[in-house]
Simulated assay, not measured.
Amino acid sequence: MTSRTLRRRLHHGDVDGKRHEQFETSGLDVLSEPLLGNKEYDDSLSEVRAALWDDERRKEHIHWTLLFSHVIAQWAQWIANIVLGSGSLIGRLLPFPFATQNGQTKNFLPPLLSPLQEARLRNLQQRLQVPFDGSCVEHQDSLRLLWQLAYPDRELPSLKTELWKEMGWQGSDPSTDFRGGGYISLENLIFFAKMYPDAFQNLLHKRDGNRAEWEYPFAVAGINISFMLVQMLDLQSGKPTSLAGIQFLKLLSEDEMAFDNLFCVAFQMMDAQWLAKRASYMEFNDVLKSTRTQLERELALEDTFNVKDLPAYNMLKR
């Protein structure tokens, strides 16, 4: 029986496969002692008291069982970090998280979070729920801001024009490209342009390396990277249970904007993979998969506590 199942059963009062017995009383006259002794009454009262005592013992048992299950969960997570850490023997032999037979990443016990982690994870998950809305003034202003950051010396165009294709949108209306990416993918691009302007400009204008004849579209690639990170980090669950997601929670405790910073690292990493593979437009999905694999490996490093600890972070140029 898993700790999760145990907690669920305890929550419903089902210990050892049995429900709590219910004891009905008739009020104060049952619990108060009579002035004169009455054997039948005393026997009945003793039974009720015994039942109430048993009930209290069950509650105490539940409390300690829950506490014990939390301790076991913490130990299991600690052992998993040691076993899968890159510094351990198994970590060196298997630098990538264990996978099931169908190739899906194996889930681990959800960790116990600090109040700070809980708050930051909740805020991030709320951001993920916001779809891009082309009719929303705030979202329109964000698109304009992205253009100004990308092309500070050029005139701001209308929201529907062929000029947006130069940034790597597929059509004249950028709002049609977001789909599952949501508003957070636009926030990620803006964060990248603000925090790492040189790296942003290098990727936007494809300045590094020998480029392919058919290059990946910059803006749409960013949306795909945001979506990939959400899936990899298991952020649509209540609490992440993938190894990468659990490791990400450590980064989140150190940096409230860990997701946005990780997006910048992943984008830079994806471009490096693109150049190394000499890929072209039709191979973008393969490059994205390779990027995910490399990023998961770096997140699994035992000395990673901040996005800046990732080896790939060094590729970003301020």
Rank of each mutant, 00 (worst) to 15 (best):
I184H: 02
I184C: 12
L186H: 11
N188A: 15
L189N: 11
L189S: 04
F191S: 13
K194M: 12
M195K: 13
P197R: 10
D198T: 15
D198I: 15
D198F: 09
N202E: 15
L204D: 06
H205W: 10
K206A: 13
D208I: 14
G209W: 11
G209S: 12
N210G: 11
R211S: 09
R211F: 08
A212C: 12
P217I: 04
F218I: 09
F218T: 06
V220G: 00
I223A: 03
N224R: 06
I225V: 14
M228T: 11
Q231F: 08
M232L: 06
L233G: 01
L233E: 08
L235G: 04
L235S: 05
S237D: 00
G238N: 07
G238V: 10
G238H: 04
K239P: 01
T241M: 06
S242G: 10
L243A: 14
L243I: 14
L243H: 07
G245F: 02
Q247R: 09
F248L: 12
F248T: 03
F248I: 11
L249D: 09
L251M: 04
L252G: 01
L252C: 10
D255K: 11
D255L: 11
D255P: 12
E256C: 10
E256V: 08
M257K: 09
M257H: 12
M257Y: 08
M257L: 14
A258Q: 04
F259S: 07
F259I: 13
F259K: 14
F263I: 08
C264V: 01
V265F: 00
V265N: 07
V265H: 01
A266S: 14
F267N: 13
Q268N: 15
Q268E: 07
M270A: 13
M270Q: 13
W274C: 08
K277F: 02
A279E: 10
A279G: 15
Y281K: 14
Y281V: 06
M282E: 01
M282D: 02
F284V: 11
L288N: 08
L288M: 02
L288H: 02
L288Q: 07
L288R: 01
S290F: 03
S290P: 06
S290Q: 08
S290M: 06
R292T: 00
T293C: 05
Q294K: 15
Q294R: 13
L295N: 08
R297N: 03
E298M: 04
E298R: 05
L299D: 01
L299C: 07
L301K: 11
E302W: 13
E302F: 03
T304H: 01
N306M: 15
N306Y: 15
K308M: 12
K308W: 09
D309T: 06
L310W: 00
